[in-house]
Amino acid sequence: MSALPASDGTGCDPVAAPSLPGAAKGQSAPIFGNDAASIRDLGDGVACFEIHTKMNSLRPEVLDVLEFAVDRGGRAFDALVIGNDDPRAFSVGGNFPVMLGMLERGDFAAFEAFTRRGQALLLRMKYAPFPVVAAAHGFTLGGGCELMLHADAIVAHADLKAGLPEVKVGLIPAWGGCTQVLLRAQTEPHGARGPAAALASAFRTIFGGTMTGSAREAQAAGLLRASDRVVADRDRLLGEAKRRAQDLLADGYAAPPRARIDAAGRSGMLGVVNTIRGEHAAGRLSAADLAMAEELAFLLSGGGEAVPRPRGEDEMMALECETLMRLVSRPGALDRMRHMLATGKPLAN
C-alpha cells in the first residue's frame, strides 16, 4: 500500500480530527477530509472513513470525502473501515434540516440530485475493488443505515440501534435501503423464500420503520447478514472491523458480482397491498399511510410488472428515487417532516 495522499485540490483538506478508540488508537492519523468527515490511516493498509458532523448526519460535504475515498481505494489504501469514536451514533442519516431546506425552497431538483448522488456513491462503494467494512454502533439510522447496508461486511456493536425510519416522516429509504433490504431477504440463508415472501419481509422491515434494540434484532429484521459479526465490547469495535477488512484482503478480495433482484411484480404487490388495505379497512392505518404503503409495495415489487423480470440494483434505485420524489410532492408531505423536526414525533396527517 502506498502512503495516503494529502489534499489534491478536490476540496478535501487535512484536518485535525478526534482520535480513534480501541485497537486502532495510536495508529490513526488524519489524512484528508473536511470539517464534516475525514479519512484516517489505521495502519496495515487499512483506512478509516470517519464522519464528524452532529450525530454523524450525512450532508453533502460528507459525501465529498466518501467519494474521495472510493475513488482512491485500492491505490491509496487496500481496505476501508467506516466508523468513528462517537459514543452515540454511527450515523443518524441524511441531515434532515438540510434536506427539508431544499424542499421548503422548492428546490426539488437539488433534493433529487442529492438523492441520486448518494445512491450512485453507495453503489460504487459496494462494488469498489477494495473491501469496505462498517463498524456500526449506536444510532445507525436512515442514510446511516443505508451506508452500513452497502458495506461488504459489518462488524456491529451488540447494542446497535439500527433502522430505516423514513416512513415516519412520509418518505422511503432511497439511498438503496429498500433495494438492499430486499436483496438480503432474498439471499440470506435464513431469509424468506420466494419473491413474494422476500417482498413481504422487506416491506415489514421498511414500513415498520422501527429501530432495533440490539444487533440480534437487526439480524432478525434483515439488516445484518448471518456473516456479519457482533462484538460486545465497544472499545474493540474498530479493531475488529480492521481485522475483518484484513481477513477479506487475505482471502483475495474481489468486488462482489452484480446482484439481481427477483422482482415479485404486480402479483406480489397485490398480495401485500391486500394486507395493508385490510389494515386500513380495520382502522389501523391512515389514508396517508396506506398511500405510502402502496407506493412502497409498488417499489419493492420492482415496479408492478405483470410479468416481472429480474431487476438490477441501479434499476431498483431509480424506482426508489422516483417513489421518493412522488412522496415529497404529496400534499402534507412537508408538514410531516417539519413536525418531526419540531417535536421528534411523527405527524399522522
Binding site: A192, R193, G194, P195, A196, A197, A200, A264, G265, R266, S267, G268, L270, G271, V272, V273, N274, R277, G278, A281, A306, V307
Partner: peptide
Amino acid sequence: GFNTLPYPSWDTQAVEDYINVGL
C-alpha cells in the same frame, strides 16, 4: 402461504374479495 401472488390483472377489489375473508 409464504408467497401470496394473486393474478396480476385482478384489481385490488377482486383480490380483496378473493382472499380477505374477514371483509
